[in-house]
Design a protein around this nucleic acid. Sequence first.
DNA 1: GCGGTTGATTTTGTATACAAACTGATATTC
DNA 2: GAATATCAGTTTGTATACAAAATCAACCGC
Lengths: 218, 218
Amino acid sequence: MDHPTPSPRSATRHKIEAALLEDIATGALQPGERLDETRLAERFGVSRTPVREALSGLTAQGVLVAGEKRGVRVAQYSRAELGQMFEAMQEIESVCARLASQRLTLLARSEIENAQAACAEAAARNDRLAYIKANEALHMSIYRATENPYIFELASDFRRKTGPFRAKKLETQEDLLASVESHVDLLAKIFSEDVQVAVDGMRKHMTESFMRVLAANG
Amino acid sequence: MDHPTPSPRSATRHKIEAALLEDIATGALQPGERLDETRLAERFGVSRTPVREALSGLTAQGVLVAGEKRGVRVAQYSRAELGQMFEAMQEIESVCARLASQRLTLLARSEIENAQAACAEAAARNDRLAYIKANEALHMSIYRATENPYIFELASDFRRKTGPFRAKKLETQEDLLASVESHVDLLAKIFSEDVQVAVDGMRKHMTESFMRVLAANG
DNA sequence: GCGGTTGATTTTGTATACAAACTGATATTC
DNA sequence: GAATATCAGTTTGTATACAAAATCAACCGC
């Protein structure tokens, strides 16, 4: 996903990382669950060394955390931590909104509107999974509109880390349609000529979104 | 510095990371320079294993990059990339200034002023290395004043990545004294009651700083 | 003389072995 | 009976050894 290197520069390590990410995404590995190096090593049929490197890589990404006592665990966040994380994310997203609004090229606007259309369509079909993907794509297109790869990366990172928690708040079709509605409003503000309107719009959007997330993660 | 764990949970690895960061920050290791695992291992009197972990950690942080051919190198950026990176950093720092200004506790203010005093003292002694360290500590204390560990981490990351380039602009004692002057002005604005003043002050500070950096990396 | 190919040497990735640190629990003493 | 000390069993961190991959260069063929 973020490793565009096609060269198999240490294939096993990346295979293990990918497999673990898959397990976490599918819920096979629960937040807080401990990972045992030796067990993983024999599961993948390799020695502890590459497992170790994969684990330390995922820890650096924030997917895993070094446990208080021993070993590494799947990251889990308290309500307070979630709040702080979302606060940080809100700041980043606001920056994105401002830059995107200031720099918006025709091409970027087109991609944002395409993504928005995909969201609306998925919501109309009540296709939850498609909606989540389209929603991510929509926000990504806003990040891209900043024309700054470092900010894009930052924002994407937060989106990855908060993904599992944000997903929880999209259950019924009403949720999806409400989300689309919220995005229509947001985009109108980003496309407005007034940068402050764009920033405030994004702030509001994020606040609404996070309030629902926190409510769903009580 | 950023690892508050007092437990020596893999002390050697962190020692090596810290030493390398130090070398990079002070310019002892130049951007683009290649790092040899074996050489580092014997330099630190350890085996290749912990060196390897340190290197992969720093690579994950973006301080080092996997070289095209072999080994890892100190990250180097084109002028354009530097500009984008500094733009992103400016945005983050501005967010920090706003939050710090809004939330400033007495303790936080005290730590910021201590760091500032250390800067001034190092500049007066014309101790370039000490000044660089104190300067980092000063900005870190502002990050910490945001009371948000995720934002702190973000800002620290950028500081690490841009360290080697920023170091270049601090050569003569005049540079150091000018920098101190600039910080006096900045802190006065952050300590003001007006959040917008704080943000604008940080923006100005960063812009000035980056203009000099870009001039020094032509 | 130039280009391709092979070979030697360095370098990286993985495995394994070993030592130290930590966990949990049982036993012993006050 | 409670608290502390000690000990066994894991588990992690580091070292070393080994194998595969890649770079550089010399050499051979054209």
